[in-house]
């Protein structure tokens, strides 16, 4: 059982606020990134992030490790909440460009404090093919099903699976070099 599983269990069984806070600290930045990738609006993204974590508080009982990782569950809530928002009139009035992939804002690493792991990630992203960029974006960050992805990218269904692996592993952070 890794740390996340332990925290989730503690939060789920006891509604332990410390565990909730730790999970929030672990994931809020990435979920903000996921939401912002869909909405492309900073203020709205912050609001939705808050909604997402309220939902996590309310619905943690419904999470089951047997159906997937906590991260995946959270990712799903975040993507859905953001996508829901794009259907609102308030959002449509903002006229945001929704055809932006997750890698678009990762272009200027020199502006950030960057560690070695991140440097490598940037270097690998630069080398990433257009096909891979699209696929990773749709499968992980836009919540496309395998079928939707195969249609959107005009590739065979089975290829979605193998390509998910090959594309992402070219980016994989080296934890155990």
């Amino acid at each position: 059982m890794d740390e996340v599983d332990f925290l989730v269990k503690k939060f789920q069984e006891e509604k332990d606020v410390k565990a909730y806070e730790k999970l929030y600290n672990m994931y809020h930045e990435s979920m903000l990134g996921v939401i912002h990738n869909i909405l492309q609006d900073e203020d709205l993204s912050k609001d939705i992030l808050q909604e997402v974590f309220l939902k996590v508080w309310d619905n943690i009982e419904s999470y089951s490790p047997k159906r997937g990782r906590f991260f995946t569950w959270l990712l799903n809530i975040s993507r859905n909440a953001a996508i829901d928002k794009t259907r609102s009139k308030e959002y449509k009035d903002l006229k945001k460009n929704q055809n932006i992939d997750i890698f678009v804002h990762i272009s200027q690493p020199e502006e950030r404090e960057v560690d070695d792991q991140e440097k490598m990630l940037y270097a690998n992203i630069k080398k990433l093919s257009e096909k891979c960029r699209k696929l990773i974006d749709l499968i992980f960050y836009k919540g496309y099903t395998q079928k939707e992805t195969s249609e959107a990218l005009e590739i065979p269904l089975g290829t979605v699976k193998t390509r998910s692996r090959s594309c992402l592993s070219s980016l994989k952070l080296s934890l155990n070099p």
Partner: peptide, 8 residues
């Protein structure tokens, strides 16, 4: 997670 974090 990391990609999402640096994407914003």
């Amino acid at each position: 997670v990391k990609i999402a974090e640096v994407s914003k």
